[in-house]
Design a protein around this nucleic acid. Structure first.
Lengths: 200, 200, 200, 200
DNA sequence: CATGAATGAGAGTTCATTCAT
DNA sequence: GATGAATGAACTCTCATTCAT
């Protein structure tokens, strides 16, 4: 699956140029209207060269998303070990997520579009991929066990709902243009989490 | 814009058959893969007859959505005058919305898809359509004024976020197949609203 | 399988024009070099109209071959009941086949080409399709039983070989241009059959 | 025409590897579906290296066929001098041909395919190549002159037909899978020759 | 001599929309 | 009003061949 990786540095450069061009084209045109030939042109290569590295639009989009994930996860998120106040943890995660979303809003919009169209990209969305929900559910359950969160809530349904709330609101604001200032958004979302969980 | 409404009863019947067929086809194939010729075939008319009544796929989809809104709003929602306990009001609205969503899940999925693709359908979604957000925001502000809801929350951002939470979670469960029992979903969502607002 | 049959007489005409055009194009260009767009153009219709009636080159070629078979089998072959001298029967069948082959030489050449390329057209060749071999084998076995043909021959292998001889020689002469006069060809082939079988 | 023969032993090795690889690829994929890049890959060289030795697919195929002819003709055929019973000569030639055909069935199938597609390869086939037909015709004429073969037959047409019979039947059995045991095939073909010629 | 990336013309196919009957 | 055939622009993907390194 997928074309063989380039063996020369020239190939490496061309491939990278294609991915960068794809990102631009996807952001500009959306997934459906993007044409492989436009990506090739934007990368400054012949249309056929696209197929030296990718099997089609899906493949290169997957690569773009892979890069996006790196950019959204790497920075600070996991490195925040040592923090054990759940409020701080949640607040930091939300803020980080919203900052990332804002930075990559156009691409997130495309990802959202693709998720609706292509089953296989569903998993890449915030609320589902990578067991984020499960991790949050576990955290909530633990807080409930410690008597620090509302015990009447179903941990998993709560994790799902609150995560959905953050990602969806981010979409409505950064992509949909709902007029909410960034700081207000972060504060509101955080406070809603705390209140919702009845975090002591 | 739009084709003239049919005058004969035969024309009325054909038009209705097309709309019903469109709904089936959209539910089965999604918006993008639905072909006008398939809709015509499903309605038992010639492909050309489609254009006697509609200008294209968008037009007939708009009609289907118009019907959907009728079905989702009419029943009991607005008629629930006289109730003034905010908890009951919110709980009833959420439950009703989730029930509707479940009933029309396939079409809601298509609507979601279309929203991503076609700018002009964005407005039809739950969180924005018909000033629902604004009404919720007003309600929240009123509760805050009465000292019955967390005064620290931004009313509009809160209305937006909580509405987004409900609709997005509905999507994840009813369309995406997230395994959450219906009653758990309703209870969780309601409780999250109450907690989030600190409804006294 | 296959596109729906035309429902109007106009459609019938267009379909027929496409088949006729296909025959010309196949005879002129061979199967591999024939383009569906050329067939459409030769039929005087838009390139897309081709697909109103056929799924692709294979489909229309199959239709051309179907017509060819009609033309090659109908005329006199089966109607020659009442003849029971095996020599006459064989001679008549060979002569008829060779006459047909000569008449349709160009198309037979294309059919030969396609048989080499596409598994699914193999069966259309003379030596295999339609149990011709089996019928000949049965005839040979019967003659052997009556003591009128060389009993030492394997009936089926003989039928296969002699049929192959006729069709292949026809190909070499009518398509390949081997310089053998028609009458010489018929006489030689007949005499070879008689001798080979030792028909008394 | 054709690229210059390699001078270094390294070049010699590469060229030989390409020819061997070509043979495998042709047998596996047929002529039309074989890609020069696959041949290069199978030979363990870069795709561009192919063109150091050959001008294209046709060229290397010609080389493969040249090798095939060597293998099919060299062994015993010509060395059988001293035999002058025509029956033995014919029987030996047929048996040898059929044995060779069976051994190289896959490649013969490809050769057959190519003959249909490429004019310039027609001449390589059994029935025409290298004056075999003419030699057979001369032999038949001689036998007729000696009164040992049916004088009523046209010598050349007969040579053509009987040769065609053998090669075509071989194709049908070894490539087409017609169920005829090898020994039955040889015996039948031989006896058909003898009978057909009325060899005394 | 070997490498492997780059090229780009070209063919098949789809389907929304029109319109003569 | 209904029919259904006709249209044709648009886009993807392949692969033999070249050539700079």
């Amino acid at each position: 699956m997928g074309r063989p990786a380039p063996k020369s540095s020239r190939g490496l450069r061309t491939r990278a140029a294609l991915v960068a061009a794809a990102r631009e084209v996807f952001e500009r045109d959306g997934f459906l209207d993007a044409r492989t030939s436009d990506i090739a042109k934007a990368a400054g290569v012949a249309s056929g060269s696209f197929y030296t590295y990718f099997d089609g639009k899906d493949e290169i989009f997957a690569e773009v998303v892979r890069q996006l994930r790196e950019e959204m996860l790497h920075p600070h998120v996991r490195e925040r070990t040592g923090v054990d106040d759940p409020r701080e943890l949640i607040a930091a995660a939300n803020a980080e997520y919203l900052r990332s979303y804002r930075r990559h809003a156009r691409l997130m919009a495309v990802l959202e579009q693709v998720s609706q169209v292509d089953e296989s990209f569903r998993a890449l969305r915030y609320e589902r991929g990578s067991a984020l929900i499960e991790r949050n559910a576990a955290m909530i359950a633990e807080l409930q066990r410690l008597g620090r969160a509302d015990a009447a809530l179903d941990a998993r349904a709560t994790a799902l709902s609150l995560s959905a709330m953050v990602s969806r609101t981010a979409y409505l604001v950064f992509v949909g243009g709902e007029p909410v200032p960034f700081d207000t958004l972060v504060e509101t979302v955080n406070r809603l989490w705390f209140n919702a969980l009845r975090l002591s």
